[in-house]
Computed example of a mutant assay.
Amino acid sequence: MSEGTMQRAAHRDQRDRRSAGGRRRGRVLVGAAAVPVLLLAAACSSGSDSGSGDGAKETQAGKAEVSASPSASPTVQAARYAKLPEACKVLSGRTLDDLVPKADEAGKEGTSSDVSQRASCSWDSLQNRGVKGSQFRWLNVSLLRFTSDQTRGTGERQAQEFYRKQVQDAQSVDGAKNTKAEPVSGTGDEATAVRYDLKKKEGAFKQQTVVARVANVVVTVDYNGAGLAGDKTPDADDLMKSAEKAAEEAVTAVAKANGDSTAASGSGSSSSTGSPSASASKGASGKGEGSASPSPSKSSSASASASASAAKS
């Protein structure tokens, strides 16, 4: 090989080496430029995952805290009175002598599955005047106590509703004539007196019903009288005064049985939602709701039957 040929071969070899080196440096630079991009992408991805993880943890923690806290349940105010007096002992001996002369003061206790919530007692008397006829009297005292309940509400609210129904029922008795109703003051938180005439084959009966409420207890006094075998019909005003007196005593007995001396004279909770006079006028006009009250109608029937038997004997 000549010297010129060897020089040209050496120059080609050097150019090839420089070209190869340049290509390698280009690849290195390209690879180096790609590294920051990958690192940046990894950093962004890592930050996003970390943020979502913290948010998920906070959400789960919040849910756990909410589920761990107890749910607040509504509370109902406890009823004021927790018991009832003995129904046959709510009236004094003197009152019984005035209303039902010569009657057995022990009375006849009504049936009840729980006397702490429902109780009643009745008395009857017959004064035989011989050829002048006789006077019959029948007296019944009923006590009903309501307890507070989350579904039905407070005991006082239930008593208010029952009180109004009792007043309306007393004014809706089948066969009643000359029905009148008026509020009674000084007896419990609210009270209403209802009177009417009831004609029976044994005689003309004068019926008096006093419904009173004291806190969560409703007291109903039924009192009727009749003149039999030719005796004169008793005065309705006198009978009503006696019935109101009996109702006041019964309300006082309820308060005393629960160690309360403030509610006997009408100075109790006094939170009625409806006035007695309004209920009375509504029932007297024939717009009262509900069927005839079992107490007045049964009392009249019972008194009629008892008077008939007594008259025969």
Rank of each mutant, 00 (worst) to 15 (best):
E182I: 04
G283A: 15
N128M: 02
S265Q: 10
S299P: 03
R25T: 11
A119L: 03
D54N: 12
P276H: 03
S113K: 11
S92D: 10
L96F: 07
T75L: 06
V66C: 01
V254S: 03
D238V: 07
Q171I: 05
E244W: 01
K83C: 06
S242Q: 14
S270D: 13
Q168L: 10
K245I: 00
R27K: 10
S148K: 03
S116A: 13
A257W: 01
N128A: 07
R15G: 06
N128S: 11
Y196V: 03
A215C: 02
P294E: 11
A263D: 11
K177W: 00
F205N: 07
E289Q: 12
A68V: 06
G47A: 15
V214C: 04
A306S: 13
E86K: 13
R23Y: 00
Q60L: 14
V173I: 13
T262R: 11
G290C: 06
R18K: 10
S271D: 12
A204N: 14
R195P: 01
S269W: 03
W138S: 15
S73W: 00
D235Y: 00
K245C: 00
S45G: 15
K287W: 02
A257V: 06
V210G: 04
R8M: 12
L84E: 06
G227Y: 01
A308L: 12
Q208M: 05
Q117F: 03
L96C: 12
G133S: 08
S269R: 07
A41I: 07
D189I: 10
A170H: 04
S301D: 14
R18Y: 06
R23H: 07
P183I: 06
F162Y: 13
